[in-house]
Design a binder for these strands. Structure first.
Lengths: 138, 138
DNA sequence: GCTAATATGAAACCGTGTTTCATATTCATG
DNA sequence: CATGAATATGAAACACGGTTTCATATTAGC
C-alpha cells in the first residue's frame, strides 16, 4: 500500500469534480471548506492539490489575471496528450481541441522552424464563440 | 512634459537592454542593483518595470517554473503583434515566429472552431533546436 | 487492539509584489 | 541661477499565495 485515503482528500476531489470544466483556485477551495460538515485546513488543501495533481486527477495551470494557480478536474484520463487547449480570456473556460490542422502545424514548426512543440503545455488564448457573441459579457 | 527622467529608470532600462533576448526577473534586477555605482531600491525597480512595460519598452510575461514575472527588452517596437512566440522550456529563450502557416492556423481556428486567437498572448512551449541537439543540456 | 506509516492543521515562515509617507530630484519658469 | 510644483525615490510596513515545522490524529496491515 502506498496511500492512506482520507476524508479530507476525498472531499476536496469530490468538490472539484462537481465543478465540471470550471477552474478553481486554492483560495476558493479553502474558503469553501472553511466551514461546514467536513472542514479542511488551509495547509491540507494545498497538500491535497499537490498530490491530486501529481496523481493526474487534476490539471494545474496559471493564467494572467487570476492570482494564484488554477485547478481543473481531469479524473486521471491523460487528457492533455496529443491535443491543444483553447483558453477563453473572457469566461475562463478551457476547451480541448483535437484537429488535424494542429498536428500538421506541429509538424510544420518542427521541420521548418526546428522547434519541438509541447502540446500538453501550449495554450491558445483568445475569445470563445459564446463570449464573442455576447460582446464579451459573461 | 509628462515625464521626469531619472538615473534609476535609465539604469534599469540599460541593464535589461544589455541582456538582449534573455528574460530577467525583478528579483534578479534588484540583486544586480543592490550594490554598485548606481544603486536602485527594491520599490523603485518594481515601479520602473511597471512603467517601462506600460511605455512598451519591455514585455512582461509569466511562465510556469519561474517564480514571479519575467521581463524582456523590446525597445518600443510593437513586436508582439501579428506573430506568435516560441518559448524553449529548457533554456528559457523566447523566439519570434512570423509565418504564413500560423496566420492560416489562426484563420482555421476562427472559422472552424469559432475561437478568436490572441496571437500576442499565445505562446508555444517546447524545445528549441539548440537544446534538442544538446540533449537538453544548457 | 497494536503499531508503523502517513495525513492533518495551527503557527510561523518565505517570496513576490504593493502601499505609505517623508525626502529628494527633475525641470519649467522667472 | 533661484524658485517651486510635479514627480520620483526608498525604507518600512503591508498583502497575499504558498511552504515548512511539528505536535497530534488517522489509516491500514498485522
Amino acid at each position: 500500500m502506498r496511500q492512506y485515503n482520507t476524508k479530507q482528500r476525498g472531499a476536496v476531489l469530490d468538490y472539484i469534480r462537481s465543478l465540471g470544466d470550471a477552474h478553481v483556485t486554492a483560495a476558493e477551495i479553502v474558503s469553501h471548506f472553511s466551514r461546514g460538515e467536513q472542514p479542511v485546513g488551509r495547509t491540507t488543501v494545498y497538500r491535497c492539490l499537490d498530490r491530486l495533481t501529481g496523481d493526474g486527477m487534476l490539471r494545474r495551470y496559471t493564467t494572467d489575471g487570476v492570482s494564484g494557480a488554477c485547478y481543473q478536474f481531469t479524473g486521471g484520463k491523460d487528457c492533455c496528450r496529443e491535443h491543444f487547449h483553447l483558453k477563453c480570456e473572457r469566461c475562463g473556460r478551457l476547451e480541448h481541441l483535437e484537429c488535424g490542422a494542429l498536428s500538421e502545424l506541429e509538424r510544420h514548426v518542427l521541420t521548418r522552424h526546428e522547434f519541438l512543440v509541447n502540446t500538453q503545455k501550449t495554450v491558445f488564448y483568445g475569445t470563445c464563440k459564446k463570449c464573442v457573441n455576447n460582446g464579451g459579457m459573461v
